[in-house]
Amino acid sequence: MPSFRQLVRQRFALLMLLATVGCGSKEHDDIPDGLLSAIANAGSATTAWEGPYGNRTGDVIAEHCFDGWQDPSAAQFDSESMSEICLSDFYDPTGNTSRILHISTSAGWCASCGTEYQGTASRPSLSARWQQRRAQGFAVLGTLFQDNNENPATPADASIWTELYNVDFPFAVDPSFQLGLYADESVQPFNMLIDTTTMTIITQLEGDNPEVLWSAVDQALTPN
């Protein structure tokens, strides 16, 4: 006669095995009809470059539009003077004006993001890096997606951020975190290089790794 302990042990093992491999179904919530209609009515924006689109290195990036400034410094960091900035603004199939777009995502709570913008004694600021390379067809788009408390960034947050770091390259606010399609919010700053002649993602780097990032930028800018 097995003891109580042995019974528990035998039965529990079987139960756990059955639980491990038993029946179940995934949840699939229905999308409300009203929302489906709104999606259908909204139509789809035309994109200047062809897909299929993806979010990994080697994929073609889809169009994204934000509110921001082409030059925050020139706009005196005034959130009222924001206008729409789209990735298509940087698309240049000829490569005459723009060849590489560097997208840098930041959050107010991210100390490394600030260091990337501000630079240090032994490290140029992001703006200085851009100025050094812009004649070679290098463009930068900075975005801010969260404030200090992980709430969606507002135009006012973007004003503070750009003024603090004296940003003079295109900068946008991304409260719905569209660029979260490319990297999770926990791995900031996130830097992505786009070949603007094809809008192909050529590099994605999570975290602040300046040696790796700027070597990749310079390599991408070097004529083949």
Binding site: G22, G24, K26, E27, D29, D30, P32
Partner: peptide, 13 residues
Amino acid sequence: WYPSSPSPERIAL
């Protein structure tokens, strides 16, 4: 084995 998991629809909604 995952008997239940969140769907993209539910997250987005």
